[in-house]
């Protein structure tokens, strides 16, 4: 992730980023927008205006408006004045930006995290990732559908414990 570590930040930015930690993805509420890598930048301008930069997971992600409202609400409650939320497309979001703690939170929530550093992202054929069942840890799993309940997930099933589960698609 291109984000700086919090320790390098001046205190006021440190506080701003920590405040933004309260903003979660409305569709996967165990993950913060920082965990997901959606939060690209946050800064305080000379006129005290706060600018927060976010990027969508998918072009049509319907959660973006809500995330923007949440950022404004959370920062407003924390006493920040003018808040501007910018959405950028470049560089394009990738599941590789998901934080280590975010991946663990996903697994605990019952969603298999994306295969890491996968080379299959642009492979057109024969690129089934190995996905571990988030319930029982078995690797005996199969894809039921390439698309799931949200744009970022696919539907899988475990052949060991027979439970269905969501897999966070690797892009």
């Amino acid at each position: 992730m291109p984000l700086q570590t919090l320790e390098d930040f001046p205190p006021e930015l440190d506080k701003l980023w920590q405040t933004l930690e309260a903003v979660v993805d409305p569709e996967i509420p165990v993950l913060t927008i920082a965990d997901l890598g959606l939060l690209r930048d946050a800064e305080i301008g000379a006129d005290e205006t706060v600018t927060v930069t976010i990027t969508p997971t998918y072009s049509g992600c319907p959660a973006m408006n809500m995330i923007e409202q949440e950022i404004k609400r959370v920062l407003g409650e924390a006493g920040y004045g003018a808040v501007e939320v910018k959405t950028v497309l470049h560089p394009a979001w990738t599941t590789d930006w998901l934080s280590e703690s975010g991946r663990e939170k996903l697994r605990a929530y019952g969603i298999a995290p994306p295969a890491k550093g996968s080379t299959s992202k642009r492979a057109l054929f024969g690129a089934e990732p190995e996905v571990t069942c988030p319930h029982c840890g078995s690797k005996e799993t199969e894809q039921v559908s390439a698309f799931g309940s949200t744009a970022c997930k696919a539907l899988w099933r475990c052949r060991s414990c027979l439970e269905p589960f969501d897999y966070f698609k690797c892009i």
Binding site: S59, H90, A92
Partner: peptide, 10 residues
């Protein structure tokens, strides 16, 4: 190009 970088993944 930025829009394409996003779109091509999808």
């Amino acid at each position: 190009a930025a829009i394409a970088a996003k779109s091509v993944k999808e």
